[in-house]
Design a protein around this nucleic acid. Structure first.
Lengths: 216, 216
DNA sequence: ACAACCATACCAACCGTTCGGTATGTTTTT
DNA sequence: AAAAACATACCGAACGGTTGGTATGGTTGT
């Protein structure tokens, strides 16, 4: 696993350029439909550089998922909503932040690892595992705030902070599919609004009432 | 659009066999990673038969999406929950039915058109459009029951039946991504349970309360 | 000098697609 | 009713382009 060019950060950036290109091109065309030449062309490098940094195309897929996990982690860690005092405010701050970055073309705001997970499931387990680590790692960052918000409001629920955190990711991933289907953002934003409404309802009741339709 | 060989039902089924194979193989490997040979092998036919029925591989993708829309429409139309009297019971019956068919391998219960939408967005607009028609067409079938349930309970909401119907599809699609990421069903089922909880909360209040966190 | 980095040239396998041909059934002509 | 003409379903070999990957040599920083 070659280190990301620590000596000369402005030169020797072929690896990063390739990972950036992978992030953009794969989100638009998919992993399998993206050729190594496509990536080299988008990154402005040659095949020699590509196979110097990545043993195979699959290895680039794994590295792209890891790169996505790194960059998005830093992106969300620096987001302003973390400075809010109330954990529930931080949770809503996160969702609003996710809403705010749904802008422009779907290929720009949708999730690389969500796209790749579906596609390479069955053909590239290594990539799928790297994508899963990114998705669930990100979901886990929401759990402390959810748990704190539950404790602060005395919520006794039949769901766990982990399951709610993962549900938020499911809604976002599903919203991205709707966005890609229509090419627009409205359906995605509407779905995230439903998620916000769900969170509001969940945290506005102090104890969980029996679900009248929970037959099984 | 060649008719499916009405005279000899046991022969002339290469087209259907190919569409069945496409449904299964593409869900596991993705569209681009599935070669025409793969499909022919899985269907037990030759390339000649493939290109007799489909002009291009892309045309098969479009036909597979349309076939998916047809077969799933019939599948859900015949489901038992339609016989319930209360429209809200039918809505929960639908969600429980979706839960019940989340069984076995993810490649068997996940959504073909949701998978393809993400992948071919940008490279095959014709397939993407066919997938979008399937997704939103299916969502539209939920709107009458949602609207009737709202009317029966005097719900005055800031959301529409159409947006809630599409949100259910977003949750399901997102749940499928989680399932493919882990290879299991638990996270998907948990997410659908959150959807059920949301529906329960939505329809248990008679008028929409202001959202305390709806700052924008 | 030496290793890391990257470019050029190239290859073998695979891909989607084409096409000549066969078998069988259907319609039209005689 | 038989023959001729046509239509549909399917086979499988072959083609040309593309693909992921390799071999090799040059350049740059230390």
């Amino acid at each position: 696993m070659p280190r990301p060019a620590k000596h000369h950060p402005e030169r020797g950036d072929a690896r990063t350029r390739l990972l950036d290109a992978a992030r953009d091109v794969i989100r638009a065309k998919g992993f399998a439909a993206t050729s190594v030449d496509d990536l080299c062309k988008a990154a402005g490098v040659t095949k020699g550089a590509f196979f110097h940094h990545f043993a195979t195309k699959e290895a680039l897929g794994v590295a792209a998922a890891a790169y996505w996990a790194e960059t998005t982690s830093a992106f969300f860690a620096n987001a302003p909503y973390h400075r809010l005092d109330d954990p529930l405010d931080r949770l809503f701050g996160y969702v609003d932040f996710r809403k705010a970055i749904i802008d422009g073309d779907p290929a720009e705001f949708t999730c690389l690892v969500g796209t790749m997970t579906q596609e390479v499931y069955g053909s590239h387990p290594a990539i799928r595992d790297a994508c899963a680590a990114s998705i669930f790692g990100h979901a886990a960052t929401l759990e402390p705030d959810i748990a704190a918000a539950m404790a602060a409001r005395g919520i006794e629920a039949d769901w766990t902070p982990a399951s709610l955190a993962r549900h938020t990711q499911a809604v976002l991933q599903g919203a991205f599919i709707l966005a890609k289907a229509t090419g627009g953002r409205e359906d995605a934003l509407d779905s995230v609004d439903h998620l916000k409404r769900y969170l509001t309802l969940l945290f506005s009741q102090t104890r969980s009432k029996g679900n009248p339709h929970d037959g099984r």
